[in-house]
Design a binder for these strands. Structure first.
Lengths: 214, 214
DNA sequence: TAGATTGTTAATCGATTAACAATC
DNA sequence: TAGATTGTTAATCGATTAACAATC
């Protein structure tokens, strides 16, 4: 039986991937866990432990080959396959995501934009026209869709999420400010911007308080 | 000396705040840690431990008064004060954030939009006109700005972040896909959308693998 | 070979959960 | 008062760090 890898580790992998990508761009061929730890401001121990969850990618006395490690982490994270995405909710945020070309470099391709608001029907973003939600069922029959992005007000989000799941969607990137109640087989990744702002606010207030004390 | 509260706890506070807000809207007057734990799918123990980091907000035999606890968490997180925000980078994402009216309900008010691209100079979002970055210094003299949002390509982000800090900004909400290297007194909250997508991708791949095995 | 650095085990630290006395 | 539920201490669990033998 395979051991489950903790989400704490998974959360750090994109960061390793990013640093390795930069090293690669800079033409760096190899790197030791120690050098990487200095750059990333984490312990070398943690880097080695994290990586060894997935296998031994290094070599004693040498370190890690940057290109090889970059590719291996890419494979682990699914960067070697294309993920087709639809965006449900074609408001400003939905449009911003649809417009963000860099996702495509990582294999995340936005192939559809949906909304309920007929006023949006005419427009298109990067050549992707906004469709009405009642066209979704047919669209899903004709296209492989791996991820549905939810950029809707929370009042609509739960209902639409359930509809998506009924139509066969198994992964949701949720920007709506609520916890979706969905079957266990559905993978949900939340981006709660308000929560993020609140955390920032707390840390600002905390910092101000500690200054007052001095 | 006050004990530092761990970021693990801080990360959970906005979620408590959200659930309590919903209970409040539903007219619920009081709630026990046990009932809340069932709704939120966390342990009652964790709820009580988390809250008691900040003080005893409940009453034995009664539970927690929803309105009171909501307000107290609000104060802890700084929701009782206004935070003036500028958005630096007036592309689609910056515009989407500037347009998001719900932030204002929590006291986060966007008062300025900046960019380097002269092509954006004419436009305005929700009555906020896009200014050029060279107007920033004067703007900061005339307005209290608590948070700067960075929605720029990573090539520009580091330079602009340092400029902001030099001009007196102490808190940054960073959407650029890099780690900012800034002085210790600056509070940074990162929203790395690509990292979030990668995590989702990993969990999709993992789920598919475990299905194959059955 | 000698030096460097990994992979991995062991030790420590911190976070979560359980238990229960205090008390409303 | 009896019942309910908190606040808090103690026990457990998991994650991080340290240490070092293995090995390139």
């Amino acid at each position: 039986m395979e051991k489950e890898i903790s989400q704490a580790v998974i959360r750090r992998m994109p960061r390793y991937y990013r640093y390795l990508g930069e090293l690669l761009d800079d033409g760096v061929e190899r790197i030791s866990s120690n050098d990487l730890s200095t750059r990333m401001r984490v312990t070398a121990s943690q880097i080695r432990q994290d990586l060894n969850n997935f296998g031994g990618f290094g070599q004693q006395g040498y370190g890690y080959n940057v290109k090889y490690l970059y590719d291996e982490i890419g494979k682990i994270m699914g960067m070697n396959q294309q993920h087709n995405i639809i965006v449900v909710g074609a408001g400003k945020l939905g449009q911003a995501l649809a417009n963000y070309i860099k996702f495509e470099k990582r294999g995340f391709v936005i192939i559809g934009l949906f909304d309920v608001n007929p006023a949006l029907k005419g427009i298109s973003v990067r050549g992707i026209k906004v469709r009405m939600l009642d066209e979704l069922e047919d669209f899903l029959k004709e296209n492989q869709v791996d991820i549905a992005t939810l950029t809707l007000p929370k009042e609509k989000a739960d209902e639409v999420a359930n509809m998506l799941v009924d139509l066969g969607i198994n992964a949701i990137w949720n920007f709506a400010h609520l916890d979706l109640q969905l079957p266990d087989h559905v993978v949900v990744e939340n981006v709660h911007l308000s929560d993020s702002l609140m955390q920032l606010s707390y840390n600002i207030v905390k910092t101000e308080k500690s200054k007052d004390k001095k």
